[in-house]
Amino acid sequence: MRPLLLHSLICVACLAPVVGASQNLVVEPAAAPDVASLRTYTKHGLKLQLPGNWTVLEDHPSDGENQRRLIIEADKTRFEVLNLEVTINVVHTSEALSLPDWAAHSYSLDVEDSEYYGPPKYSAYQLAPGVKAHATQFQNNLFEDDQPYAQRLHVLAVKRCGEEWNCYASTWTVEANRSAAEAGMQKIMETVTFAD
């Protein structure tokens, strides 16, 4: 597995607040994606539809010639709403990697050797027709079980989006955001195409 590819695919969202911060704050999941008002995003051969209440933050090549990265954020109107970002990586098929390998490596990078994270629970499923997905669920033991930040989640998906290109989608978030993340990712992955 190429380290360059793995580093370009891994974009860790700023999720964990300072532990000493107010733990009495009532937080809410990200809003449901507005899939009734999809917006089309097109730039340099990449085309997709994203929910009307999601915004493209970054669009740039990664370190390698055969890669590209797009970062999309679910609009956040209040401090109390949990962050949700989705990264789309366009990768040449010659550098393809499996979702189980990506999930295991991502988990190991995220938790490193920390004693504060529980063991991962992996599950494979179909996000949409032709879109394979993989979820990793694990516990952040710095937080009480009933706090949203305690239940961590990685969702990964892939599909062939061009003649020689795969599109990978990923989010590193919390379990409370799962339905919003999957609904938005599904629409993106159903529509994404890339032509170099």
Rank of each mutant, 00 (worst) to 15 (best):
R2L: 13
R2Y: 14
L4A: 15
L6T: 12
L9G: 04
I10A: 06
I10E: 06
A13Y: 12
A16L: 15
V19M: 13
S22N: 15
Q23K: 14
L25W: 03
V27E: 13
D34Q: 08
V35K: 03
S37L: 13
L38W: 06
R39N: 03
R39T: 08
T40D: 12
T42K: 09
K47M: 01
L48H: 05
L50R: 08
L50W: 00
G52F: 11
W54D: 03
T55N: 08
E58N: 14
D59Q: 02
D59N: 03
H60S: 15
P61D: 15
P61N: 14
P61V: 11
G64N: 15
Q67V: 11
L70F: 04
L70K: 03
I72R: 00
I72C: 12
A74Y: 04
K76C: 14
T77K: 15
T77C: 12
R78F: 10
E80I: 12
V81A: 10
V81H: 05
L82C: 09
L84M: 13
V86S: 09
T87S: 09
I88T: 01
N89E: 14
V91F: 06
H92N: 15
E95M: 04
A96T: 11
L97M: 14
S98W: 04
L99T: 07
H105G: 11
H105K: 15
H105M: 14
E112Y: 10
S114D: 07
Y116C: 11
Y117K: 12
P119W: 06
P120A: 08
K121Y: 06
A124W: 00
Y125G: 00
Q126Y: 01
Q126S: 11
P129Y: 01
V131Q: 01
V131M: 02
A133K: 07
Q137C: 08
F138V: 02
F138L: 02
Q139P: 07
F143Q: 05
F143E: 12
Q147I: 10
Q147K: 15
P148F: 04
P148R: 00
Y149N: 04
Y149Q: 08
Q151N: 15
L153Y: 01
L153E: 05
H154V: 02
V155D: 05
E163Q: 01
E164A: 13
W165V: 05
Y168D: 06
A169R: 10
S170H: 11
V174E: 11
N177V: 02
S179Y: 06
A180F: 04
A180Y: 05
E182K: 03
E182I: 02
M185N: 05
Q186D: 02
K187A: 15
E190F: 01
V192G: 06
V192H: 05
T193F: 01
T193D: 04
T193S: 09
A195M: 07
A195P: 03
D196T: 03
